[in-house]
Design a protein around this nucleic acid. Structure first.
Lengths: 264, 264
DNA sequence: TATAAACATGCATAAACATGCATTGCAAAT
DNA sequence: ATTTGCAATGCATGTTTATGCATGTTTATA
């Protein structure tokens, strides 16, 4: 990334960098920017004020958001979806601590998590999804381990014996298996037998398991069981999930984390 | 980098040097330039003022930035020569036959090749680049095998012992090793020692080797040799390459394929 | 409602900048 | 040989810009 010299950047260069980051990441946080550029938060705020005055971004409490929201009906829906997933991802990454080893599965939600992970945090990410790997390559300060194997087109990641064998040689702190379906009573489910085996291997290779699920995954089941609810330690759900469902999940012993509400 | 005479340079030479540095580094700092040329900052500022007046750069507090939407070095490279790379890729895929197994390395040129491969052609693609894998996942009718291992951030692909071991278990028909530098006399070269080893393994695992090189890769050398010219069977080059260079390459025994001219 | 974080504002300081002027080196004109 | 003209430079001057800190205010969250 364009990060020629994160430290000691020219003022204008900084603003340009902020704009790029707004485009690619969808938001910036004042504190993080101050840390990145080694300047005071005041300087960052002044930058954001200028950019906002030029109509290049929208200032919000804590940082700034892009203003380019030129959205066609189709893109808008995709964006809304993206917004919700990003909110989930932001909440999910609060469970990540410095110098941990993460095991990240395929899926658009997990891609959002990869994009939301803090840079230069000493994180090691093991993944079988080219998608996730690609996102992290474009960012900085990650140790990336790619799990190889035959790629299932419909899933978009390496599954099968080879991949499972590679995963068995890994020990991770945190695991993010993509959820196909999750139910307070019956646990985590998948639609594909091979995929279920792989997710199972991921969970077994990790200390803790975090399931991040959009609303439509909740309360439904699929064909192949991945894990019981007792093997899932954290569950991150959307803000809009109703109280009854939340209660049932909590009762099943998992720690439930509720994402922030999305503006849209 | 062309450093004709860092010290004691003529004013025009200095300005030329500044422009080059703007292209390659994305910015210049007045203080640094003054130090480099052993002139006062005033002289440097005058240079920058002139260049800016000619529309060749944008002056900012502390130095100057390139005019053409400064982007991330990586992203820049990815987008810059898109047209030319697509022309190369179109020519390269004419070498591919039905039901073959291809071994594709990392790099923007190889990504273009992946995008140009014919769908539902019975092709099996083995790659160590998440980038290439992702492109093929979004398309149809490919058997994809992902090579795992530790990912080198600067290269954007899995290299190292694990990846080489996996490649050794493969037999491919055609191999597309990314070219860092290629020379009629000295063969194929790379800038990274590990990367060179991996490319070497790829070539050894393949029946035929196809090198696809943009113009700037020709006639130059790098630090680590990947293969001699006798191990390269096909070379795909741009239309604009001059007759003399083409002759030298043909004389070295490789079959030279010339891409169509690009409109731009 | 209490609290902490994020924010705005004014001010002091240092760096970067513009401008005018004197000096230097060199080539063409005298 | 001397002078003139010109471009390039460095220095001194005053101005602008960027920044950090201290102050008081607003905002978000428990």
């Amino acid at each position: 990334m364009t990060t020629p010299t994160p430290d000691e950047a020219l003022p204008r260069e900084r603003q340009q960098w902020i704009l790029e980051r707004l485009r690619s990441h969808g938001r910036v946080v004042s504190v993080e920017l101050a840390q990145t550029f080694r300047v005071s938060e005041d300087a960052v705020r002044r930058d954001l004020r200028e950019l906002a005055a030029q109509g290049l971004c929208k200032r919000v409490y804590g940082g700034a958001l892009p203003l380019s929201a030129a959205s066609t009906p189709l893109k808008q829906r995709r964006q809304e979806h993206a917004e919700r997933k990003m909110a989930l991802a932001r909440k999910a990454v609060t469970l990540v601590r410095q110098d941990q080893v993460l095991l990240i599965d395929a899926g658009s939600t997990n891609a959002a998590i990869a994009a939301a992970l803090p840079e230069n945090f000493g994180l090691t990410v093991v993944t079988n999804a080219p998608d996730v790997a690609r996102i992290l390559i474009d960012r900085e300060g990650f140790e990336i381990l790619l799990i190889g194997g035959r790629i299932h087109a419909g899933i978009g990641a390496a599954i099968g014996a080879q991949a499972i064998k590679d995963i068995r040689r890994i020990r991770a702190d945190l695991c993010f298996p993509g959820a196909c379906a999750i139910d307070a009573e019956h646990g985590l489910w998948s639609f594909d037998s091979e995929e279920a085996l792989l997710k199972r291997a991921m969970i077994e290779a990790s200390g803790e398991t975090v399931v991040v699920a959009t609303q439509d995954k909740l309360g439904s089941a699929a064909t192949y069981q991945v894990a019981g609810m007792d093997e899932v330690h954290h569950l991150v759900i959307e803000h809009a999930v109703d109280r009854a469902t939340r209660g049932a999940l909590t009762a099943s012993g998992v720690t439930v984390h509720r994402a922030d509400a999305v503006s849209g």
